[in-house]
Design a protein around this nucleic acid. Structure first.
Length: 657
RNA sequence: GCCCAGAUAGCUCAGUCGGCAGAGCAUUUCACUCGUAAUGAAAAGGUCGAGGGUUCGAUUCCCUCUCUGGGCUCCA
């Protein structure tokens, strides 16, 4: 046969000479496509451009600048990194080097447990650029496993991967999916560097180049804490200089809104060394925002059918024995305090105490659903290396509620919870949500299968009824019940997992919780754990990053700053402050000992929503000059109309209250 | 917990190949009274994260600890 025909993604077909490659197809379609092509998808499998096509195949060309195309060039850049490291560090062992979001990494083991220094990155980059400039081809080869073992004889990690693959044990989590059964695929280039790889790769290194090595980090071999610690180099790679520059710019922007940096700059809170790791003190400005968040939360819970409770920070060990926390999570708890009358622990969760409230007397089905709410502060001994600003902290406050209901009530309860969650999150400026539904881990769960199925269905139905898009995470649930987690997207497109709704079949059992049903019989309630903010501290951190410290007017620590142009306007400025305070706003005044320009600048840097300037014309006509954050100056605005505007601006917080 | 890098004035950081510690901003005082993003001058401010070791002498070199950052692992 001298010609073959292949099917294109648009449904059309194309004839090509027999033996034509994916690259030939791209070239036949157009030179622009050929130039942008980096790989192909043939019959659902990613292939190199150089792979020959068969008659009847479905072929899609992967181009740079698409997610798939970037994936290919990032992975190819990772190979170049490995090549450079092997050449510069004799005796280095190379392991795996996948593409990841925005870039790639490669893990190495250096002889004698040596480590990379930050300035090694520059040397490695130089060598990588030489390799790329040399325009080395990526040539695929397929070897029997035995031969592959000989090729990688001095590379123990590669041998381990080959053995796993050839024994069929590869789980796909490796980038070690390099073949099936006895055949192992490798990629070589002109300098005889060879790496185990499934591919595909760009045709040659000339297609690479817009990359940057970012950082060195430690990482465990195969992700296991018990495995050897490897040296990981992270890099980023893009299809063009502009795309790379844009990415680096995005990183800078993200750094500018880092909540730890802004917490210092805006005097919100601090983590004094004397206090110990993962513990924060809230300064007045941060505390105002936090209090407003908590106040809002309380109002919403109050009107939402929740009953408020309070519980202590400490409890006798017996309680955590009953709840099972001491058996399962002791490592994560602060250590015991031995007292005359027993052993006490700081609480890592509020639920056991809420169960005690439930159990304090007999409950009737008429009381259900019973919704207990508390802003409950808990302490968890997070491992030292895992702490991260407010995002991972050792003492934090959950907007925690435990709902006790019958199985029949479950679905309605969850549906209305979703409503509640979204409504609250929207108030805080989040508008894009997705959910994850975590289902039973067959290896580790309590409760009978039937109730898991019914509860999982209830969660799924509630999600569908609400119309929220969700992913199912099979086997990701905690041992005690299925759950829904809500992710929100922030102002720069990052997602944060905030709210959670979890079924619990375990604690009602452990605490022997019951209610008397309409049939006069005793029944076990289902318990729901749910938090909207999750942790108030973490939610605050996310808000800081979402708004880049420029809180909306209803949350801003200072809503209005008044600046008298000169000392002669001081009295008038004070009268404006008095009016604003009387109207319930947070306003302050900075007198004229600094020049106006400087005071304006400081107001902007402090991200105050409104900076008012008052001078001669304002004093005589009862007006103010308004500088809205991020807007242009408005002169001669009457005080009444400004107050009206401010009222409208902060009204968002009363929605649903 | 593991790997790497750090910790110097309130903040951001420089510096000391081992010999009395520096800048900018912020603070205080004085002068300036100013209409939209940094007025000028002066002063004050440090156990150089903590403890130990080496040394005539340690902020500097070594060890341990604490805390922080980047990852890994973990996250009820």
């Amino acid at each position: 046969m001298s010609e073959i025909a292949v099917l294109l993604p648009d449904g059309s077909s194309r004839s090509l000479p027999a033996g034509a490659t994916a690259y030939d197809l791209a070239a036949a379609i157009g030179s622009r496509l050929a130039k942008a092509a980096v790989a192909a998808v043939v019959d659902g499998e990613e292939r190199d451009l150089s792979s020959p096509l068969r008659n009847g195949s479905r072929v899609a060309i992967v181009t740079e600048g698409t997610d798939e195309g970037r994936h290919v060039l990032r992975h190819s850049t990772a190979h170049v990194l490995a090549q450079a490291v092997i050449q510069l560090f004799p005796g280095a062992k190379y392991t795996i080097g996948p593409a990841i979001e925005d870039g790639f990494y490669y893990d190495f083991e250096l002889p004698g447990g040596a480590t990379f220094a930050e300035d090694d990155l520059a040397r490695i980059e130089v060598r990588m650029r030489e390799i790329i400039k040399a325009n080395q081809p990526f040539v695929r080869d397929e070897l029997p496993a035995g031969e592959a073992l000989r090729v990688f004889a001095d590379q123990p990690y590669k041998c381990e991967i080959i053995e796993r693959v050839s024994s069929g044990a590869a789980d796909g989590a490796d980038s070690g999916e390099v073949g099936s059964g006895e055949t192992i695929s490798v990629y070589r280039n002109s300098e005889s560097f060879v790496d185990l790889c499934r591919g595909p790769h760009v045709p040659s290194t000339a297609r690479l180049g817009h990359f940057k090595l970012m950082k060195v980090a430690g990482a465990y071999w195969r992700g296991s804490e018990k495995g050897p610690m490897l040296q990981r180099i992270y890099g980023t790679a893009w299809e063009s200089k502009d795309a790379l520059a844009e990415h680096l710019h995005r990183l800078e922007e993200a750094e500018k809104r880092d909540h730890r940096r802004l917490a210092t700059e805006l005097d919100l809170l601090s983590f004094p060394q004397e206090l110990g790791g993962g513990l924060a003190v809230w300064h007045p400005k941060g505390a105002i925002v936090r209090k407003l968040m908590e106040d809002y939360s309380r109002i919403r819970h109050q009107t939402g059918g929740y009953e408020f409770v309070f519980t202590p920070h400490l409890a006798n060990a017996n309680l955590f024995q009953t709840s099972g926390h001491l058996d399962f999570y002791k490592d994560g708890m602060y250590p015991a305090m031995e007292m005359d009358n027993g052993v006490y622990y700081p609480k890592p969760m509020n639920c056991p105490m809420h169960c005690l409230i439930y159990r304090s007397r007999q409950r009737s089905y008429r009381e259900l659903p019973l919704r207990l709410f508390e802003l409950g502060t808990v302490y968890r001994y997070e491992r030292a290396g895992t702490l991260h600003g407010l995002m991972r902290i050792r003492g934090f406050t959950q907007d925690d509620s435990h709902i006790y209901c019958t199985e029949d009530q479950l679905q309605d309860e969850i549906a209305s919870l979703l409503d509640f969650v979204m409504s609250v999150l929207r108030t805080f400026g989040f508008h894009e949500f997705t959910a994850n539904l975590s289902t039973k881990d067959p290896a580790k769960y309590v409760g009978d299968d039937a109730i898991w199925d019914r509860a999982t269905d209830a969660l799924r139905n509630a999600l569908e009824r609400y119309g929220l898009s969700y992913k199912v995470k099979e086997g990701d649930a905690a041992f005690y019940g299925p759950k829904i987690d809500i992710d929100v997207k922030d102002a720069i497109g990052r997602t944060w997992q905030l709210s959670t709704i979890q079924c619990d079949f375990n604690l009602p059992e452990r605490f022997g919780l019951e209610y008397v049903g309409a049939d006069s019989g005793r029944h076990r309630p289902i318990m729901l754990h749910r938090a909207l903010f999750g942790s108030v501290e973490r939610f605050f951190g996310v808000l800081v990053e979402h708004y880049a410290g420029a809180f909306p007017a209803w949350l801003a620590p200072v809503q209005v700053r008044v600046l008298p142009v000169a000392a002669s306007h001081q009295q008038y400025a004070e009268s404006i402050i008095a009016r604003l305070a009387a109207a319930g706003f947070r306003a302050d005044l900075v007198d004229s000992s600094d020049p106006l320009g400087k005071r304006i600048r400081n107001g902007k840097l402090e991200k105050i929503p409104y900076v008012l300037v008052v001078g001669d014309t304002d004093v005589s006509s009862g007006t103010v000059g308004v500088n809205p954050r991020g807007g242009d100056v408005e002169r001669d605005v009457s005080v009444d109309s400004f107050i009206e505007r401010l009222r409208a601006d902060v009204a968002v917080a009363s929605v649903g209250a």
